[in-house]
């Protein structure tokens, strides 16, 4: 009956030194559709694949605005994500109210880390079942991209992906990792779309309904790209007429060093 003696509650170690409930929470993130994030020296782009439960259903929102300078993409339990985004919005408002200053991304991410950590150490609680990609632009320190997971790991990245088949997206992102720094926003988005496309199930493709793009950066408030603007990017993706940077990089991709696969240890 019991497959595992040590996975019944959050605060019991297995003899192998693992906390199984936390690892299950990380699995919940992998059940969600993929989200991709990447960063240049001036901007951060988040992309997400939206699911719908059927022909007659709407698509689940995947990108959330936190403040003018910050947005998140999620993978996993949406209801948990809404709790966290509500918390993040409140913290941003508090920062504006108390100090007349946009909430620094790094600080907000540590706050989320603290919240998530409590849920991994107290009996009777459960970890969040959602992973977040946080994109923020601070006047002082520039653009930042963070990943926050249920195990309370919060790390900063040049490019990441979370959710179902996110490893495929990571493989793409690692392949072109050298390009992102000096890239303009359009090329960054195209890289993101290519990465996101890797996470699709067979015989599915990106379209206006199942795809979201969010941008934030220097002189650019958080902006979700949809409708005609999204269409333009998708058409560009379809025709394969990738931006010059992408094209140039593609030819030399073989020469680039392959990065280690990023796991969530």
């Amino acid at each position: 009956m019991f497959r595992n003696q040590y996975d019944n509650d959050i605060s019991t170690w297995s003899p192998q030194g693992r906390l199984h409930q936390i690892e299950y929470a990380l699995e919940a993130v992998k059940q969600g559709s993929a989200s991709v994030g990447l960063r240049s020296n001036t901007h951060v782009v988040l992309l997400a694949l939206k699911r719908s439960s059927g022909e007659l259903a709407s698509h689940q929102q995947k990108l959330f605005r936190i403040d003018n300078h910050m947005g998140i993409a999620i993978a996993g339990l949406v209801s948990d994500a809404r709790v966290l985004s509500n918390f993040m919005r409140t913290e941003c408002m508090k920062s504006k109210m108390m100090y007349d200053r946009p909430m620094p991304g790094s600080r907000l991410v540590s706050l989320i880390g603290d919240k998530a950590q409590v849920n991994t150490q107290n009996y009777g609680r459960r970890p969040y079942g959602v992973g977040l990609l946080v994109a923020s632009y601070d006047d002082e320190t520039g653009p930042h991209l963070y990943e926050c997971l249920p195990n309370a790991n919060c790390l900063e990245y040049y490019a990441v992906s979370i959710g179902a088949k996110s490893q495929s997206a990571k493989t793409y992102l690692e392949k072109f990792a050298k390009d992102y720094g000096e890239t303009d926003v359009d090329a960054l988005i195209m890289h993101g779309l290519h990465a996101l496309r890797e996470t699709l199930q067979q015989d599915k493709e990106l379209n206006l309904k199942n795809c979201s793009i969010g941008v934030v950066g220097k002189g650019q408030d958080w902006d979700v790209i949809e409708g005609d603007r999204l269409k333009a990017y998708l058409e560009q993706l379809e025709t394969g007429a990738a931006t010059t940077e992408t094209g140039a990089a593609a030819t030399t991709a073989g020469d680039l060093p392959q990065g280690e696969a990023m796991d969530t240890e």
Binding site: M98, Y99, D100, S106, R107, D138, E140, T141
Partner: peptide, 19 residues
């Protein structure tokens, strides 16, 4: 202590004092 490159500048301290 946060040591993250952010500091409270004069307008931020003013807002805090006001609050």
């Amino acid at each position: 202590n946060a040591d993250d490159g952010h500091t409270l500048a004069t307008p931020n301290i003013y807002e805090y004092l006001w609050r």
